[in-house]
Every structure is written in structure tokens, then in C-alpha cells.
């Protein structure tokens, strides 16, 4: 279980508080108007933004002392998820060993991960030669290799076309189910949440609300969400 305990993040002209927990193995969307703090919330969990007060706990363990790379999570950003000068295989290898000294067993795992996201044969290519969808698959495969129990998605598929985005969301759901990964997914599109998220956290007016079942939330949206949706 991911717990945000009396969490408060204060920056100049910005304030966000949260007191909630996300059950292990769930797929939870984070929705809300832009500027409300969805990305900041993920940045805090990932360790890039220090909370002003409160704690972030995973299975009861406080994450505060851990640097970003040692937290029990992987994160996919909006862009720059791959190093353009490294090959696909090297970018994936970073998920196993940051120094890229990979043994035969590691190589085999990299190949398996490439196969899982249907990119076999592209190992030696560099990201610049891949399409946007293929790049997203590489980033997702690396998260798969890292095998951390928590996966944070900060709108990594926002630049993809609608069909491709649905495909990637389905792939995320399948991979998460196979591995029991807990997923927290920022989105500004209600359809994304309705497509794969069991639960949804609404971030609005300086607060991240506790997660509620996605369908019931969108069926009877509270005023802040209704204003955002425009109905």
C-alpha cells in the first residue's frame, strides 16, 4: 500500500496537500485541471520534490531517506525517457544495472523484455530512429526490467495518437496485472482513466482526494471535477 500521510507540498504560489492511500496492485488514475499539482504529486513520490511536511510510505516504510534511484518505483516522464546516444538494448540494460556491466543472464532478460513489448530486432537501434510508439515501448520495457513494485506514469503517452495511446494503455494494464505492479497514472483525459484505471484520485483546489472507483466518480462528478470536465 502506498500511503501519503498528512502530505503537504508548498512552493511559491502553489500548495498541495494529500492524506490518502493507494491499495497494492491497483491501477489508479490521477486526474484534475492542469496546474493543480498532478505531476508535482508524482515528483514527490519519486523523490524529486521534497514534501514540506508529512510522509510518503510504501508498505509502511518511509521513503524520505531514499534517493530517487533507490525508491521501490519506476517513473516514466512526459518525454526524455531514453538516452538518445545509447542503443535500445543499452537503454534497457540500465534498468538492470546502471553501470551496464551485463552478464549473459542479464542479456537474456533484456531480450525477453524486448520480446514482451514486440520490439524484437530493434536492439541495436538508437531511439532517434524509432517512432514515438516504439520509444514508449522501450521505456515501458525498461520499467518491466527494473521490476519495482510501483510504476508512476507522468503522461508518457500524451504525444501519441489516440489509437497508439489506447494500445500503450492496454499494454501497461496487461504488464501491471502480470507482475502485480501498483500503477499511478497522471492523465488529463477522462477516457484514459475510464479505460484502464480501477480507481481515480482527483487533484483540484490544492488537494489530492483519496482514490474512489473510477466509474462512480465520473458517473457523479463532484463540483471541481464537473467544472474541469465542462459539464
Amino acid at each position: 500500500m502506498l500511503t501519503l500521510e498528512d502530505l503537504s507540498i508548498r512552493q511559491t504560489d502553489f500548495h498541495l496537500c494529500a492524506n490518502l492511500s493507494v491499495p497494492t496492485g491497483s491501477l489508479t488514475a490521477v486526474v484534475g485541471p492542469s496546474g493543480a499539482g498532478k505531476s508535482t504529486l508524482l515528483s514527490a513520490i519519486a523523490g524529486f520534490v521534497a514534501p514540506t511536511t508529512g510522509r510518503i510510505l510504501w508498505q509502511g516504510q518511509d521513503l524520505a531517506p531514499l534517493p530517487p534511484g533507490q525508491r521501490p518505483l519506476s517513473i516514466l516522464f512526459q518525454d526524455q525517457n531514453l538516452f538518445p546516444h545509447l542503443t535500445v538494448a543499452q537503454n534497457l540494460g540500465l534498468g538492470l544495472r546502471p553501470d551496464l556491466r551485463l552478464g549473459p543472464a542479464d542479456q537474456a532478460r533484456v531480450s525477453a523484455a524486448i520480446g514482451r513489448v514486440d520490439l524484437t530486432g530493434l536492439e541495436a537501434r538508437k531511439p532517434g530512429t524509432l517512432s514515438g510508439g516504439e520509444q514508449s515501448r522501450v521505456a515501458l520495457a525498461r520499467a518491466l526490467l527494473r521490476a519495482r513494485p510501483l510504476l508512476l506514469l507522468d503522461e508518457p503517452f500524451a504525444a501519441l495518437g489516440p489509437a497508439l495511446k489506447k494500445e500503450m494503455l492496454d499494454l501497461v494494464r496487461d504488464i501491471a496485472r502480470e507482475n502485480g505492479t501498483t500503477v499511478l497514472m497522471v492523465s488529463h483525459d477522462p477516457d484514459d482513466a475510464l479505460r484502464i484505471a480501477d480507481l481515480t484520485i482527483l487533484v483540484a483546489e490544492g488537494r489530492a482526494e483519496p482514490p474512489v472507483p473510477t466509474r462512480s466518480l465520473f458517473a457523479a462528478p463532484p463540483p471541481a471535477l464537473a467544472a474541469y470536465l465542462g459539464n
Partner: peptide, 11 residues
């Protein structure tokens, strides 16, 4: 690439 490096534990 700062955050990406940090999130992967590149040091």
C-alpha cells in the same frame, strides 16, 4: 536527463 538519470540510479 537529470531526473531520468536519478530515477535509474545512475551516479
Amino acid at each position: 536527463y537529470g531526473r531520468l538519470s536519478e530515477s535509474l540510479g545512475l551516479q
